[in-house]
Design a protein around this nucleic acid. Structure first.
Lengths: 161, 161
DNA sequence: GTCTATACCAGGATAGAC
DNA sequence: GTCTATCCTGGTATAGAC
């Protein structure tokens, strides 16, 4: 995960992975069939963890609280999961097809929340929340910004305080 | 640019580039010394075009108008430049070191604008604008969203209408 | 389950002719 | 300026022993 995240999938050799993991190169292929299989295993592992966070948002019934929770997601990334999310965002730009289902449900729950609140255009409002989440994640993962007051500022603009 | 943007730098072979461009593989190396040199040439070409857009923001003296213009930037991406920006964002995630100087000046001009307007925390406000630009660019480049009412919605939240 | 050795191919890059 | 032919390294993947 560490190597794929920093060097990219194609930029990482199975030799380097074997060395970093302290195993022989052959073992990787015995376990995962091929390099692609290793990537899939990593993604599956990470998506399972990610789904937990998405559920926490979706299960909130009070619409304002749900939106608030959604925005706060990127601010609460476990530093241990940093590598995984970097990899996910890098893949996003490299493999257009890749669009995991948890994200689709997540968006739907945002649209629903804005509908409940009677907003003019729930779809656009949901997109804006996605925009903010993507943008914040980019800044946090890539520039280690001080996120302290940023969350507060965002919630203010969106009257969610 | 097209191949690098969709397949990534390492994922694109010089053979594929030569075929796509309708020239021999050797010619690429005569022109650009090596694969890395080709990437640099592409980036330089694109950054020159990008600098024009940044200048248009920086040169606006009225702070509110400057911020407004900044936010509108990703909405006005020339479809012809789509490939280039996809490549830039993909590189962002793949090469941490890479941080072109035009972006630094751009940020400074945002902080300055918020200072002029007497905001409590100009740095955070500037970061939020960057967050939005990154997020919007991601959505536009990757998901071809209908950006129509999104810009208006953002300007509203930030009292820039 | 794990390692060593090795096959095989594709990648970047060069030389030299036209 | 451009093409063809070719080199060589390093990458993925397999075979077989332990």
């Amino acid at each position: 995960m560490k190597l794929f995240a920093s060097l990219g999938f194609d930029g990482t050799s199975t030799k380097a992975i074997a060395k970093e993991a302290g195993v022989s190169e052959g073992l990787i292929f015995k376990h995962f069939k091929n390099k692609e299989g290793l990537l899939e295993a990593i993604i599956n592992y990470g998506m399972e963890k990610a789904s937990v966070y998405f559920s926490e948002v979706i299960l909130i019934s009070e619409p304002k609280k749900r939106i608030k929770k959604a925005i706060s997601l990127p601010f609460t990334i476990d530093p241990n999961d940093n590598q995984f999310w970097k990899l996910m965002y890098a893949l996003k730009w490299q493999r257009a097809e890749y669009q995991p289902s948890p994200f689709v449900l997540f968006r739907a729950s945002l649209v629903d929340a804005f509908e409940q609140l009677g907003y003019d255009n729930p779809e656009v409002e949901a997109t804006l929340i996605e925009v903010i989440i993507d943008g914040v994640a980019t800044q946090i993962l890539l520039k280690n910004i001080d996120a302290g007051t940023l969350l507060e500022t965002i919630l203010n603009k969106h009257s969610l305080n």
